[in-house]
Design a protein around this nucleic acid. Sequence first.
DNA 1: ATTGCAAGCGTGATAATATAACAATCGAAA
DNA 2: TTTCGATTGTTATATTATCACGCTTGCAAT
Lengths: 175, 175
Amino acid sequence: MATHDDPAATPPGRGAGAIAFAAHDHAGCRRAAIAEARARCAAAGLRLTPVRERVLEILLESHSALGAYDVLRRLTGEGAGPQPPIAYRALDFLVAHGFAHRIEKLNAYVACCTSGARHDPVFLICRKCRAVAELSSAPLARDLERAAARIGFDIGRTVVEAEGLCPGCRGDEAP
Amino acid sequence: MATHDDPAATPPGRGAGAIAFAAHDHAGCRRAAIAEARARCAAAGLRLTPVRERVLEILLESHSALGAYDVLRRLTGEGAGPQPPIAYRALDFLVAHGFAHRIEKLNAYVACCTSGARHDPVFLICRKCRAVAELSSAPLARDLERAAARIGFDIGRTVVEAEGLCPGCRGDEAP
DNA sequence: ATTGCAAGCGTGATAATATAACAATCGAAA
DNA sequence: TTTCGATTGTTATATTATCACGCTTGCAAT
C-alpha cells in the first residue's frame, strides 16, 4: 500500500482527498508533480537544479515517507556517494517552497500532493507502510488560530500528524 | 518567559488554559504535578522510581521543552554522568503514562500540565523561549477523526504542534 | 526464609539524524 | 568579461536515539 501502478482506478487528479491510500495512476501523479514544480519554479525565479529535481523524483517514487539518508542512498548506486548535506539541502529547498513536506514524527519527507504554494496540511501517516496522505487543515487551522489568539499566542506554522492504519493495512495487522 | 516564580498571580490550578505563558505560582505547579504522579502511580501499580521522579522534577523546573541530553546533563553534576539510556528510559516511562509529552518538532520533552491520564493535547510552542503550552485537542481531534474515517483511515494518536511566539516573546523579537 | 523472576538500572558501544565550515563551481547580470 | 550570489562537493562533527548485556532489586510463590 503506498505505490500503485494500477492504471485503471482514478484519474491522475492531484489534490484529491487522500490519493495516497487509493489505487491510482501513480505515474500520472509523478508527472504532474514534476511538471508543477518546474512551472512554479520558472514562474517564481527559483532554480530547480538537477539534484533538487532528482530528489523530488525520488520522493515521488511512492507516497511513503523517506528519511534523508534513504534519499541519499538512492542518489547514488553504491560506491562513494554524495554526502548528507547534498540531500538535506535539496530537501530543505523542496520543503521551503512547498514541493515536499517534512513529517516530524518520522524525521522523514514526502512529496507534496497538492498543487499550489504554501499550505498547512494535515498528514495521515500509516504506521505500517509509512504511506502519508495529505488533507487540508484549513478548518482545523482556523479553530486553532482562534484559540491561540485568545491567549495571545501568535501561530506561525502548525504541524498536524495523525498516526494510524491506512485502509490497505487494516485487516492484515497483528494486534 | 517560561519559568516564573511570581507568587502573586493565579493560583496553582493545573489544567488551566495555557498556564505556561502566564505568570503563576510555579512552585505550586511542580508540587501538584509530582503529587499527581505519585498518586496515579500508586493507584495503578506503577513504579515511580527515584530516577523517574527526578526526571519529572527536572522537566518541571520550567514550562520549556528539554532535550533528552539536557535532562541527562542535569541528572548529574559534572563528572562521569549517567548514559543516554537512563534518560530515555525515564522519559519513555513518563510519556507512556501521560506524565510528560514528547514534542516531535523539537525532539524534546515537557512535563504534562493536565491532570488525568491519556489525552491528545495540542501544543503551542514558542520559537523563542521554547515554552510549551498545552491545550485540549478534543474538538480538533473529533473533526479529524471523522475526516479520516471517511477515507477508511484509523487514527491512533495525533500530534498537533503549533510553532509561534508566546505572549511574552512577542514585541521583543528581531524582525 | 529461599528461590525465581520480571522490571529496572548501569555501562559501553553504536546507529540514525542533522549541521558547520570552507573551498570550488556555476550562472546571471553589471 | 568581470563580479557576485547561489549552489554544490567534501570533510568533519554535533545531536538524537537505540542495542546489548550483565547486575541489582523488589516482590511474590513456594
